[in-house]
Design a protein around this nucleic acid. Sequence first.
DNA 1: AGAAGGCCCTGCGTGC
DNA 2: TGCACGCAGGGCCTTC
Length: 276
Amino acid sequence: MPELPEVETVRLALLPALENHRIITAHVGRPDLRWPLPEKLADRLTGRIFGAPQRRGKFLLVPLDGRETLLLHLGMSGSIRLHDSPPKLGAHDHFMLAMAPVDGEVATNFMVFNDPRRFGWIDLFSDEIHPMLAQMGPEPLGNMFSEAYLAAAFANRSGPVKTALLNQQLVAGIGNIYACEALFYAGISPRRKAGSIKARRAQRLTAAIRDVLQRAIAEGGTSLRDHVQPGGEIGYFVQQLAVYGREGQACQRCDSRIRAIVQSGRSTFYCPTCQR
DNA sequence: AGAAGGCCCTGCGTGC
DNA sequence: TGCACGCAGGGCCTTC
């Protein structure tokens, strides 16, 4: 589910509920998500105070007092919900935190991590950088991401540009939906070799990536099935998708039929006329 | 090294 | 109505 815009939407909602709040109780349901949860996670969290949640790619990073950081990844089907009273936990609610304002004792905020497919994961780390983040490429909405960077990162790659966009080591946070959408707006075929993206196309692609991600964040992300914002709202960008999930429908630009293919085992949607 | 496929897991839509 | 199958927003691991 969650690509950069969905995770950013979650981060923004969590910010006021977590920052400067103390963890009163932590509850771990199933300890086996993508990887086993850290030993004694609940004990290690209880009593700690959160700083402001950050995002890196599709990861959420919440600093704790001291030097540790709570890392959350939502996998394919993960979601985080906030409540103002103790929630009743369901079958796929694997992790819950009850929090109070830093000077209070009574829990007022409750955060629940739900993940039916259990592809998500939770970790607690104290090193300067988590191994999962060490190899990650630049943030597409940050200053390090540019057409020159993209052209250099894609140079000499013989695989398709669509697959390269999904590689988190090259660019962080782009997933299947936004890779398809960005390529549509850039007018680039997903089948084109990544190494052929230079100058003009690199410029169009970087601009398209930034634009589509920012527009999606503004709409609360894309809700296909599992994604909800922590307050329970869905993400409305699904209504603005130009190609993703639109096989056989008319291209909004040229009226050709949107085509679906499989690349590296993932569905790709594109307009065979507009995208070259 | 880079590319492609399998795999982890549950739920849901489709077609028979 | 029931059931089997395929597919789903991710990322690691193995193989070539």
